[in-house]
Simulated assay, not measured.
Amino acid sequence: MAIALARGASVVDVATELAVSPHTIRAQVKAVLAKTGTSRQAELVSLLAALPMTALGLR
């Protein structure tokens, strides 16, 4: 979910892809923000961009 958002997908796009409501995605984003100590989605994207691709399961 966070990776899809980082790639530019909207909350509605991710919700549709995962067959859940946009509210569920927003709640999950809030939980991820809290766990990572970030307060904005842009901060989370920056944090993800700084990780090695293997840490994100992309290689």
Rank of each mutant, 00 (worst) to 15 (best):
A27V: 05
V32W: 11
A42G: 13
P52Q: 04
A34C: 15
M1E: 06
V12E: 04
L48K: 03
V12D: 09
A15F: 04
A42R: 13
V45P: 07
I3Q: 07
G57L: 05
D13Q: 14
E17V: 10
S21N: 09
T16A: 00
L5S: 06
Q41S: 15
A19P: 03
A15Q: 06
A15D: 05
V14W: 00
M1Y: 06
S46I: 11
A34R: 14
A50P: 02
L44Y: 02
M53E: 12
K30S: 12
S10Y: 00
S10W: 00
A4V: 04
A2P: 11
L5Y: 02
A31Y: 04
M53A: 12
R7I: 05
H23R: 15
P52I: 06
P22C: 06
L58P: 08
A6G: 13
R59V: 08
S10P: 10
G57S: 08
L51E: 07
G37W: 15
Q28G: 07
D13H: 07
G37D: 15
T36A: 11
L48G: 06
L5A: 03
A55F: 14
L58V: 10
A9Q: 08
V29L: 02
S46A: 12
R59I: 08
M1V: 12
T24F: 04
L56S: 00
L51W: 12
G37I: 14
P52L: 01
A49Q: 09
Q28S: 09
A42T: 14
A34Y: 14
L47F: 10
A19G: 07
I25P: 15
L5E: 06
T38P: 14
A49E: 08
L44D: 01
V20C: 00
V32M: 10
Q28I: 04
L47D: 11
Q28T: 10
V29Y: 02
P52H: 01
L47N: 08
M1H: 11
A9S: 12
V12R: 07
L5G: 01
S39H: 05
K35P: 05
R59D: 03
E43C: 12
V29S: 06
P22H: 03
L44P: 04
G57W: 05
A9P: 13
E43R: 14
R7S: 02
T38C: 15
L58C: 01
G8D: 03
A9Y: 09
R26T: 11
A55E: 15
Q28E: 12
T16P: 01
S46D: 05
A42P: 10
L44W: 03
L33S: 08
G8V: 10
G8Y: 01
A15E: 03
V45Y: 03
